[in-house]
């Protein structure tokens, strides 16, 4: 039995209203309402394996925090695990934008990277 799912595309700020038709097994039969190809990819992923970029901060040894993100989107269902690992990480060396802070976070195969430069002065 077919069913429809309505989504708001989050790929870009345009926020297209997507309509996805799903088949019996939850497979995507068609996508409409998208203004570009990326919308179709998003809709398919969103219905089969929704993905999100996680952004947060990590604690540094100087007591401050510095911003990080997952290098790519990770499965939405694994967001909590990603946060847990980010929360238990302490950065002890200076980093520049793009430096890897956690490899393969929560087994997602995605790295957590620094999104700002952070200098940590050691005594």
């Amino acid at each position: 039995m077919e069913r429809n799912r309505e989504l708001t595309c989050i790929v870009c700020p345009r926020g297209c209203a997507l309509r996805v038709t799903l088949g019996d097994m939850g497979e995507v039969l068609s996508v409409s309402g998208n203004a570009c190809k990326r919308g179709e990819v998003y809709a398919t992923d969103e219905c089969t394996n929704p993905m999100r970029t996680v952004t947060s901060t990590v604690l540094c040894t100087d007591g401050e925090v510095t911003p990080v993100r997952t290098e790519r989107a990770v499965p939405k269902a694994l967001m909590n695990g990603v946060m847990k690992e980010i929360n238990s990480t302490v950065l002890n060396k200076s980093v520049t934008v793009g430096d890897v802070i956690i490899e393969n976070v929560a087994g997602t195969g995605v790295n957590v990277i620094a999104t700002a430069c952070k200098e940590i002065f050691t005594k």
Binding site: C12, P13, T53, T55, S56, P67, R69, T115, A116, C117
Partner: peptide, 21 residues
């Protein structure tokens, strides 16, 4: 520090600090 910046300018999705950088 959230993502969503730079799709028009750089064709990729950056966080605020990265865009500024």
């Amino acid at each position: 520090i959230h993502n969503g910046f730079g799709l028009h300018t750089f064709g990729e999705e950056l966080t605020g600090p990265e865009y500024a950088y």
